[in-house]
């Protein structure tokens, strides 16, 4: 069920110091709610991304607690303030214990 879980992130390549930049994230994930029944009539076990975090140079941008009410292939868009060049780090926490990560660099002039 959880095969091919691939994160995608998009941030601008460059910005000016002090800019507020848009950050978009998407991850392929079934977000199985635990409320659906399979063809055998039994409940399909819950398996969702239950937490998503984004940091910039180690400082938190957002920390999201996620419930089954978020759609399949979870999408989050938000804004970060960048004062210097650096790295965005993204983490998606799966119910099964897996943590999927991605990073993105931005050059700040």
């Amino acid at each position: 069920m959880a095969e091919n879980i691939v994160p995608r992130v998009r941030v601008p390549r460059d910005a000016k110091a002090g800019d507020v930049v848009s950050v978009r994230t998407l991850i392929s994930h079934p977000m199985e709610s635990g409320l659906r029944r399979g063809s055998d009539g039994n409940l399909i076990p819950r398996q969702i991304i239950n937490r998503f975090t984004c940091t910039f140079n180690g400082a938190t941008v957002v920390d999201v607690t996620v419930h089954p009410g978020v759609s399949t292939n979870p999408y989050f868009q938000f804004e970060a303030k960048v004062d210097a060049s650096g790295t965005f780090a993204f983490s998606w926490y799966d119910d099964n214990g897996s943590v999927y990560t991605d990073t993105a660099e931005i050059a700040v002039a």
Binding site: R24, L26, S28, Y75
Partner: peptide, 12 residues
């Protein structure tokens, strides 16, 4: 393309 969730499958 970033907003289009189908592009996840295109990448695969």
């Amino acid at each position: 393309d970033f907003d289009n969730p189908a592009m996840l499958y295109v990448e695969q």
